[in-house]
Amino acid sequence: MTCVSIQDGSFILMPLIRAIQDNKQYLSDIDGFIGDGDHGINMNKGFTLCEEQLKAEPGDLSHGFKTLSHILMSQIGGSMGPLYGMFFSAMAKASKNKDTLDAAGFGQMLTAAKDKVQSISEAQPGDKTLLDVLLPAEESYRAALNANESFDSCLDRMSSAAEQGRDATKDMVAKVGRSSRLGERSRGVIDAGSASCCLILQVMAKAIKDTI
């Protein structure tokens, strides 16, 4: 069974933090079309605070996600603070007290994160939110896992489903969040939350694949 060590969480956390920092402007720009244009600013603020804290207090993967979750929930606010706060909190709990991660273990983390986000959000599939990435990504990962595909292959399926989910938000009309106030006028651009969610899942997948 293929697995990776998660006793040092930096192999996922650091690429994740860098990806958000590198995409700060991109995320704010797409948010600016139909939202208030601060998505990249807020995400960058949270992930950068996490970077500083993890440099001072490094630890395993669960610790890294817990640190990130705590910062997002206590300092970031907006909608993305609680949504990603819950997302990473669930991942932290699902990876707690584990030395290694295999395909089934990552599946548990992903499903836990999906369930937690759904428990707090009013959004439904098709509402043009990050759920339109998270739901198909989790579903594809789980289908591949159930078909006994390799860890690598499960991650690939998750990544491509995430990307398709992100791109599909372009033709959707926003039903929740600030952009929903635009109604039909929200059509034609991808949702910023779906873009960051796709980025996060893909960077995680790549980091794990690079380590396998």
């Binding site: 208030d36 601060d38 807020n42 997002l72 929930m73 206590s74 300092q75 970031i76 606010g77 907006g78 909608s79 603070g81 609680p82 706060g85």
Partner: peptide
């Protein structure tokens, strides 16, 4: 919270 952005739960 920040400008036009909800305060976090902790607040």
């Amino acid at each position: 919270g920040e400008i036009f952005s909800s305060p976090p739960a902790q607040m």
